[in-house]
Nucleic acid binder design. Structure first.
Lengths: 194, 194, 194, 194
DNA sequence: CATGAATGAGTTTTCATTCAT
DNA sequence: CATGAATGAAAACTCATTCAT
């Protein structure tokens, strides 16, 4: 392992283990061992365990947005833009069970609640998935293509099913093929379209 | 407190505290104190802390189903039955933030993953909300009213938005009025209807 | 060991070990072992290690004052009262090296500084030895028997030598006999008398 | 900073920080940073942290003696010599709170106890303040000016009050003016004079 | 049956010291 | 010589669980 990778190794190890065992099932000692690093080394890179978790979350959210925005074209039609973002989001999380598991745990914990509150107070959107998705929702409502509902409800109708579906896939309850992915996105669109 | 109620008192105290502080923010000593019970008494009624949590989960799920089934009539039209179940589910959880918080924590934790795995292995449904809802889905598909999709996808499209919306409401991000509730259910129906 | 003695056993063990190894040379695990008690038991009786130390200090100071006041008679002459208090103080600490060592460490540490500051702010005396000694000083000054100096200087002239002497005795550098004790007290008196 | 000064820089930084935060509140990393030196560099000049502390103590004691001896004249009268040494000691420590704080911490710690023991075993004097002061005491006793008491008691009667007074001054409890200083020294003399 | 004092394994975090560069 | 990243032993403290009463 090259030296500057220690920070990365710690984050990777922490993410893997937390995805599997949860925040409280993952002692820092376990993280250090998995990262091939001394117990104290974690604290050279992160103030404490919480900061490590925040850092992982931030990185995952950034990567998620990058994935959704990759290949995105503002000139597309509304539905094209919607489908692209939803498609990228769905496929990315489907092929990254660990990322998804970590993020789900993060959002459903005091960490996530605090973040939610902070984002609300700072006037930003209440979710980490994508601000561009909200642009699409707003444009859709303005153009009369999407029902005139509170943005949060539109968001819930669009994203809620995705999260549920991904969980089922990762649990091995259902296999994600092209049809399933497309039908899911179509369903979400039908839920919000006029 | 009459003696046979100790078990109930423990479960109630545990649920309240866990909803607020999380599994790992709620020591058994805190539960015992809140329940006006000795620390050891918990272990007369539950093998260990995990079993207590499982018991609470089972009770909440049962109560949830009872609520959904109350006033339910098999003779109703498909959409009537769908709307009834969704409406009851949504309203019940909206007015019971603690129950919802506990369940969300439960599902998004090693507990929930284990349960999910168990239910898969035993061939049952993957969710606790309601088996009657699945009957409606199956009937709807047979009758050609609901799209011919895997049951789990139909379920995701119907339930996913509800969960998201409830979270937003409990977080104080949006107020739940009649319109919002109805629009949500309509949206879910549009997502799955043919 | 009878049950209610656990708190006492912990305090005694802590005092012994701290007297010998210092605050930072005495881990809580060592205290627990010496007290024949589980590591966690300490925290049933004391909020944390600091509180344990404060409790020991308070007890020692209380005992010290009790010793000084025992057999004390307000009706005595000024010099009689002075000699009695000094004699009791000196003899008590001479035969209790551990108590003395603990107290010295306590006063010469952040603990002691905080206490000193608190006592100053609350208008009390700045030392724990004895408030009655200060009464004697004030009376002596009023009566013209003790030099009209700031109380703190009088206190320093009276107590400083005692502390130094006790250290020498405990270090085995000198043996404390009747003559030595008396000469010390006489010297202190000569330092402050008119 | 010129290179050979690194040792000095480390000692100065350590002394300052320890005076303020105590031995155990001063990590070596903090010392290194304050000294503008790498963490490992400390170990090029000192075997370990303890040796660094011993070195600082030795230097401070040496400086203290130098101060007391400066301007000292063996030809003076006994009381002149006594007053000079006491005056220098008192004033020097009064204007050097950091030095005093370090030394007090040192003497009231396992370090100081060990030193005391060592000095006892090697037959030397028990204190670092000044051997010349002991010469004065011995001469005074021979000449019949000072009471015929064990040297250690004379030392305690003379030095004890000074230490107490300095602490009070540094704590801000009393202001040190000419009168106070002189009265203190007079008091100490009265304690030991025939 | 009920209790709650006692436990000790397990957790996070610190820091003196080393050693490859 | 100087460095500072890395270490891991050791510290304070928590808490699920037990068991004598």
């Amino acid at each position: 392992m090259t030296e500057p990778d220690k920070r990365t190794a710690i984050m990777k190890a922490a993410q893997q283990l937390i995805a599997e065992h949860g925040f409280h099932g993952t002692p820092t000692a376990m993280i250090a061992k998995q990262a091939n690093v001394g117990a104290g080394t974690i604290y050279r890179y992160f103030e404490n365990k919480d900061e490590l978790i925040f850092a992982i979350h931030a990185e995952l959210e950034e990567e998620l947005q990058a994935q959704m925005h990759s290949g995105y074209d503002q000139g597309w039609s509304l539905q094209q833009r919607f489908s692209h973002l939803m498609d990228r989001l769905l496929r990315y999380l489907l092929e990254r069970p660990q990322d998804f598991s970590f993020l789900e745990q993060f959002y459903n914990s005091p960490f996530g609640n605090d973040l939610r509150r902070d984002r609300l107070l700072s006037g930003g959107s209440s979710c980490g998935e994508d601000d561009r998705l909200h642009d699409v929702f707003e444009a859709g409502i303005r153009e009369g293509a999407i029902k005139e509902l509170p943005l949060l409800l539109v968001h819930a109708l669009a994203i809620g099913p995705i999260v549920f579906l991904i969980k089922d896939v990762h649990a091995g309850l259902i296999k994600a093929d092209e049809t399933l992915i497309n039908e899911c996105i179509v369903g979400c669109w039908n839920a919000i379209k006029v």
